[in-house]
């Protein structure tokens, strides 16, 4: 059985990425507030079983690459009233990411 990651990882720390703006049914670990937002890969976390499959009793394999992505709060919330430097980090599976310019 292939229990390794699905393929070579596509992103590295420092890459600008965009989270897919999509609302598929089912168990997803990407909160709505971050979908469609742009951020920067903070680190590569490793490959983990896919929670979207695990939730339904499947084995979650092949594993998915997981990244921590850092977002500027000012980019996430239109009327954010904290500092410009404030950020929020989330973990995002690779299939939710695309390159952002």
């Amino acid at each position: 059985m292939n229990d390794g990651p699905v393929s070579e990882k596509l992103y590295s720390a420092g890459d600008q990425v965009r989270i897919a703006q999509t609302n598929p049914p089912g168990h997803r670990r990407i909160p709505g507030y971050i979908r469609g937002k742009n951020g920067v890969v903070e680190r590569y976390c490793g490959a983990f079983p896919n929670p979207e499959e695990l939730a339904y009793g499947f084995d979650g394999l092949p594993k998915r690459h997981l990244y921590r992505v850092r977002f500027r709060q000012a980019d996430v919330w239109q009327d954010y009233d904290g500092s410009d430097q404030d950020t929020v980090d989330l973990e995002v599976q690779e299939h939710w990411l695309s390159k952002a310019d």
């Binding site: 670990r29 909160p31 709060q73 904290g82 500092s83 404030d86 950020t87 929020v88 973990e91 995002v92």
Partner: peptide
Amino acid sequence: AVRVHDSNADM
């Protein structure tokens, strides 16, 4: 800077 960490997956 305030850094919020949303532990939404495996970390």
